[in-house]
Design a protein around this nucleic acid. Structure first.
Length: 979
RNA sequence: GCCCGGGUGGCGAAAUGGCAGACGCAGCGGACUCAAAAUCCGCCGCCGCAAGGCGUGCCGGUUCAAGUCCGGCCCCGGGCACCA
């Protein structure tokens, strides 16, 4: 799930540099760290050494006691559930990471700390909390690393997972380690294959009523077969089911499945021996890695029918509490447009050309047609005299990638096929062109061109001197902008008019749109098309079915074998289909220019594995295994369900457990980077909806609340040659920056080794401790916001923890020094205001302001009670800081005499009696500017306030020589004297 | 080009339409110290000696009152991009 470029770069590093960093001398630790760890400090001051000791001790105790083991209602993890009976649940998740070999930098844990703070707060407010962490461990970087080193990817992957687990353990995250999964674990692989088979053994019935009452639902494939058998659904050619051969039956059923095989256009890179994703192709049509040519080719691939769910994937976005930008991105990605399909009769031919248009109301203005160069009917439509032109245009287009085409100038190109089609509304014969501005991947790959209403068509028409007919009357203001008189003579127009307006020049014997506005014209035309059997209203989506096969080694094998008729799903009992052991994970590569080469998948070479003899119920027989593997997204689609029942061996989960943890709205909090706003979250929602339709889960959406954490960025420095220099060695002098006395240039960017501004959490553990890192990251600002890392500023968080320590512990003796004194009313008021603010903010996942409130309370205590604060205030303070700095809080709680971990200790409650005050300050404004502050009793009425304000000595000078027009009094808030 | 998000001190940031800058970093001054560090106390938006004036990207509006609401612009960041 790692963002692609990062995974690609970081994943291929030969070893974990983090191990090396943390054991050698760490930049920054000597300058910043020694401030807190020098030899002359009081013996029991909270410094980095003491923090490290406390943290290691509590991490050990949590592990030994299973503090964060969360019980399920039933099954193998149900021990201790009684304690939570009747309590609410909270399922708190991070997007799990790809275990990169480069280890973590300080930006990674931001979200993990935030979910941990929230999870700990929820535990202290009575919730049963499911919180753990997994690893998305299949994928390309590990495979590339294996290719480079000859070492099996599993070895490297497992060592990277171990490194990350170690780094995260030191953060003190309250994860239930029993539920921590890696997608490459054998159990998890089996789980993924089971989910795959649920989807494979399902079809989408657009007529079925789904569980939300809408139309369209997945059903088990056997129900489709039953419909064919009992003839409630006719076969395509009308024959009875029993009259079909076994092969025909299989092919028919397979064509309905949610997972199916089809020919699709892919980016084939012979030099790499693999298909590459669109994002991996450079602007000049070469591979991102290796710089080999990439060819657009059609290949047989596995696909998932995600487009069947387009409507629900859009409409159910209303059911989730997600950031609006993410919902928008999903809607745009799915890209539904409402319009019509229109069918054009080809002249002198029985063939028809179908197009999609969002503007059927402009059909009278369609004066030519354009097909994508790859359209399947191009060859049939091309007349012999045009064949040479068409073929050369097609060849030129094929040699260019989609990206290449787009980067071209706006100049439209195309060629005439020699054929004409009939405009169904006016019988005109209109020429058919091919042009690469029409994309094969959208709609039908063909358009009706309305040059008066579409700028692209307009440019094309001008280029090839084609007629332009207005069907909408543009408003006068539009003509004004063009600097021309209002006219329907489009030869005078400078551009197409695509806006709204009244239809003109749009009538035939049975239809007139003239005078109608756009909406009325669209619906009138759509009705006419349907009545005359040459079109219908439809919704077109940009979303394509999901290309699900990869020609690689390090991924999940399909639980599929083939016999002579096609693919067969293996039964659950034969799962998992393990990835076979081999030392050849390199894809076979070809002459980089050989576009006609065929991919040879790594698994194809394992002939013994590929050709098993299996008994599928009719005796042992030879089969051929599927040798594609699943894409990396597969492992991340359903992992939240595995967290629920990590040891369960039948089906997907125990339904009682998934019902309990998913509740009515799904995962209660899902935190991750916005880079997954579309693909991961869309694929995951799709799988979940299929499982929902099939009754495997009972929420329509997997993730009820989503939050995107921002990035942590850092300054980077370049020298005179433009080379990056080690950021930790740069010195600031009078606003300028120097590295080894040479001036350097400061810029701002992602943290990482590339920019030589890497800051690892290990550096921070060594210089300050994990609690300080946690507090600092939470105090930096709102979680959603990107913000710059500043190692210098970390010391402020350290100082806060030192002061909290000092509230409870005598630095010189190490003795607890809280008193049994009765706190003053002022203390109580400060405390309870803090509690109220912290509780309210944490409910909303605002993590920075509670730290400010806790700081204020701490400062109040250290200044009021330099020798030790009242226990009645100190204990709630310790509990409030616990979600942020859990090790420190546990240590203080324990020293305060509590035997149990504070994990489930109730979070302090607000006693509103302490919030009551008898006097308040009311600002007095004159003409909107504050001139005085009145100290008045609570409940002071408006008349008294007004009198006090007008009589105030500070106010009087501003009233001199002026007429008081009006006095606005908001009792308890404000007095404003208007002059 | 279209669609989002955001512009507040030297820096990170706070602020149900009601005292702009809480809290922290950096900086300055003081206490302690032979000294330094650490710690503690104080100052810390800009202009001004002061009184005071000016300040939340810019211009305008609504309101007794605008960082906050409305309209128009500018800049920065992100997403999509010949989608018919």
């Amino acid at each position: 799930m790692q963002k692609r470029p990062a995974a690609g770069v970081l994943g291929s590093l030969p070893m974990s540099p983090v191990e090396a960093t943390s054991e050698s001398d760490t930049p920054g630790s000597d300058s910043a760290g020694s401030d807190f760890s020098g030899p002359d400090k009081p013996a029991h001051r909270y410094g980095v050494a003491l923090a490290g000791e406390i943290e290691a001790r509590w991490q050990q105790r949590w592990e030994t006691e299973g503090t964060f083991h969360t019980p399920n209602p039933t099954g193998s993890l149900s021990g201790g559930f009684e304690r939570f009976e009747g309590r609410p649940k909270a399922f708190v998740m991070d997007m799990f990471p790809y275990p990169s070999g480069a280890g973590l930098h300080v930006g990674h844990p931001l979200g993990y700390i935030a979910t941990d703070v929230y999870a700990r707060f929820k535990r202290m407010t009575g919730f049963n909390v499911l919180h753990t962490m997994g690893y998305d461990a299949y994928g390309l970087p590990a495979e590339q690393h294996a290719v480079a080193t000859g070492q099996h990817p599993r070895i490297n992957t497992e060592s990277n997972v171990a490194t990350m687990r170690r780094q995260l353990r030191r953060l003190g995250l309250g994860h239930d380690s029993r539920r921590s999964v890696s997608t490459t674990d054998r159990d998890f692989l089996e789980f993924t294959q089971r989910v795959f088979l649920k989807i494979f053994n399902a079809w989408f019935d657009p007529q079925a009523t789904n569980r939300l009452g809408g139309l369209g639902a997945a059903r088990h494939i056997d129900e489709l077969r039953a419909q064919f058998i009992d003839r409630s659904r006719p076969t395509p050619d009308g024959r009875a089911w029993t009259e079909l051969s076994v092969a025909e039956q299989r092919t028919l059923i397979d064509s309905f499945r949610l997972v199916y095989i089809d020919d699709v256009a892919v980016n084939w890179c012979p030099g790499l021996g693999t298909i590459v994703a669109n994002e991996e192709v450079t602007a000049d049509g070469r591979s991102d890695r290796g710089n080999y040519p990439v060819f657009k080719r059609s290949m047989r691939q596995w696909l998932m029918r995600i487009t069947a769910y387009s409507d629900r994937l859009v409409s159910d976005l209303d059911l989730v509490d997600w950031p609006e930008p993410v919902r928008l991105m999903q809607r745009n990605w799915i890209g539904q447009s409402y319009g019509a399909r229109v069918s054009f009769q080809v002249a002198d031919s029985p063939a028809r050309l179908e197009v999609f248009t969002t503007r059927p109301d402009t059909l009278f203005g369609a004066t030519f047609m354009v097909l994508s160069p790859e359209h399947e009917m191009v060859s049939a439509l091309t007349t012999s005299d045009k064949r040479a032109d068409v073929l050369s245009y097609q060849a030129a287009a094929a040699g260019r990638t989609a990206i290449d085409r787009q980067s071209e100038t706006k100049q439209k190109t195309g060629v005439f096929t020699g054929s004409y089609a009939t405009n169904p509304v006016n019988g005109q014969q209109i020429p058919v062109f091919i042009a690469d501005y029409v994309l094969m991947g959208y709609g039908t790959g063909a358009i009706m061109a309305v040059p008066s209403g579409d700028q692209r068509d307009f440019e094309f028409a001008r280029m090839y001197d084609l007629p332009i007919v207005a069907t909408i009357l543009p408003p006068d203001v539009w003509f004004g902008e063009q600097g021309i008189e209002s006219t329907l003579d489009c030869s005078k127009w400078k551009r197409a008019y695509s806006g709204d307006g009244v239809a003109v020049q749009s009538e035939n014997e049975s239809l007139s749109l003239n005078g109608l506005d756009k909406a009325a014209a669209v619906s009138a035309m759509t009705r006419w098309l349907e009545a005359n059997d040459c079109g219908r209203g439809t919704v077109q989506t940009k979303l394509r079915d999901w290309l699900f096969s990869r020609q690689r080694y390090w991924g999940e094998p399909f639980p599929i074998v083939y016999d002579e008729h096609g693919p067969i799903a293996l039964p659950d009992a034969m799962l998992p289909v393990d990835l076979p052991e081999t030392d050849q994970f390199t894809p076979h590569t070809f002459d980089a220019e050989d576009a006609s080469s065929e991919p040879q998948r790594p698994l194809d070479r394992l002939t013994e594995w590929k050709n098993p003899t299996i008994d599928l119920g009719n005796g042992p027989r030879a089969y051929i295994r599927e040798t594609n593997v699943m894409p990396q997204w597969a492992g991340s689609c359903s992992y939240y369900l595995r967290y629920i029942d990590p040891t369960h061996v039948e089906g997907l989960t125990i339904s009682e457990n998934s019902d309990y943890w998913m509740g009515s709205t799904g995962v209660d909090l899902y935190v991750g980077g916005v880079e997954h706003a579309v693909l991961h979250l869309l694929y995951s929602r799709f799988w979940h909806k299929v499982l929902f339709d099939l009754g495997e889960v009972n929420t329509p959406e997997p993730f009820g609340k989503l939050l995107n954490q921002g990035y942590i960025q850092a300054y980077a420095f370049t020298d005179g040659r433009g080379m990056y220099v080690e950021a930790t060695e740069v010195i600031e002098r009078n606003g300028a920056f120097f590295h080894a006395d040479e001036p350097v240039h400061r810029e701002f960017g992602k943290i990482g080794k590339g920019l030589k501004n890497m800051v690892s959490p290990d550096d921070m553990y060594d210089a300050y401790g994990a609690d300080t890192l946690r507090v600092y990251e939470m105090s930096m600002g709102p979680l959603e916001q990107s913000k710059p890392w500043d190692t210098r500023a970390v010391s402020g968080s350290m100082r806060l923890l030192q002061r909290i320590w000092r509230v409870v512990i005598d630095e010189l003796t190490g003795e607890v020094r809280v008193t049994s004194d009765t706190p003053s009313a002022d203390d109580q008021r400060t405390l309870h205001r803090t509690i109220a603010a912290v509780r309210e903010a944490l409910q909303d996942l605002r993590v920075n302001t509670p730290i400010a409130r806790i700081t204020e309370l701490t400062n109040h205590l250290t200044s009021t009670y330099p020798g030790g604060a009242p226990r009645e205030i100190a204990e709630p303070l310790v509990l409030m800081v616990a979600p942020f700095a859990p090790h420190l809080a546990e240590e203080l709680w324990s020293r305060l005499g509590h035997a149990e971990s504070l994990t489930y200790e109730p979070f302090p409650n607000v006693n509103s009696a302490y919030l009551v005050v008898d006097t308040i300050d009311v600002p007095v404004q004159v003409a909107g500017k504050v001139r005085a502050v009145l100290s008045v009793p609570v409940g002071c009425d408006a008349a008294t306030l007004e009198a006090l304000a007008l009589a105030d000595e500070k106010v009087k000078p501003f009233l001199e020589g002026k007429q008081v027009k009006k006095v606005i009094v908001i009792p308890g808030k404000m007095v404003n004297i208007v002059v």
